[in-house]
Nucleic acid binder design. Sequence first.
DNA 1: CACAATTAAATTGTCCGCAAGTGAATTTTG
DNA 2: CAAAATTCACTTGCGGACAATTTAATTGTG
Lengths: 155, 155
Amino acid sequence: MKAHVAKTMEIPEEEKRLENQLCFAVYSTAHAFTRAYKPILDRVGLTYPQYLVMLALWEKSEQPVKAIGEQLDLDSGTLSPLLKRLEQNGLIKRTRDSRDERQVIVSLTDNGRAMRSEIDTIMGAIGQAAGCTLEEMKTIRGLLKGLRSNLTSAA
Amino acid sequence: MKAHVAKTMEIPEEEKRLENQLCFAVYSTAHAFTRAYKPILDRVGLTYPQYLVMLALWEKSEQPVKAIGEQLDLDSGTLSPLLKRLEQNGLIKRTRDSRDERQVIVSLTDNGRAMRSEIDTIMGAIGQAAGCTLEEMKTIRGLLKGLRSNLTSAA
DNA sequence: CACAATTAAATTGTCCGCAAGTGAATTTTG
DNA sequence: CAAAATTCACTTGCGGACAATTTAATTGTG
């Protein structure tokens, strides 16, 4: 007689196809976003991840690397070289915190601050491309946030 | 009097925050998936993009590079080195098509074919981690597919 | 048939993303 | 207070992504 083993729910064959993977839907949509942003961001000289960092800094113009990493869920191995590029392009400044010399404070330069005026153009264009209402966007965003938090806490 | 210019809908300030960007929700969920897959895929020696290629090959075990690229929406610049690694690991074989010498046909080796038996374990674990029903997954998948197709056709 | 245009894959160069390790500064503890 | 543990950022190394270029093969057209 069968013991009380964990029910390994049989996965229907159709659900195993690449096209039906939720992970792939997320993966390929992320790439589609990056490509959609490319021509717009090229004009202001930002890559997509750099744009995300700028969004964080436009909200709070002076933050340690760590704080930026927490918002974007990226580590310093990714951020250090990226921030160096933003600095070389004159958009940010990096200074050691005198109260805690371990920390590097990232802050906007005037150029970096000025670039915020592009935000309406950029978001407008992407909104057009995405072709969905604010309401719809909010729905998907909510579902993804739940999914993300499940995936993260599972680890 | 105002002319009939395209209505540039004012974007509410709150919608400009990093945390409220749909693109960021997709971006960070994609990373969360990769991280969730990592410990599972490590055991079978695959990276996440390599796993996606294997999914495509488990559906159709012999395909030109081009066809794989179309399914994954990746170009040869990404696939060529990735496929070389899969070949070195003994999971696939690459052979020039004799009917069209430009094409390289990718096919599964016995080892590659055998690895398909891991699919239930892998998908089961991820299903657990994602923590949502097949129904929910189907909903998000559908929404993302629509979004992706909008973003792509806008280019 | 010949030559131009197209197609497939690979390569090169740049930028992420992340694991692992380093070094310096700070905090915790015995 | 001194040694140990922790924290922060940087670096290195590897594997994607992708634009742009290269090479070879095929197709289309005059």
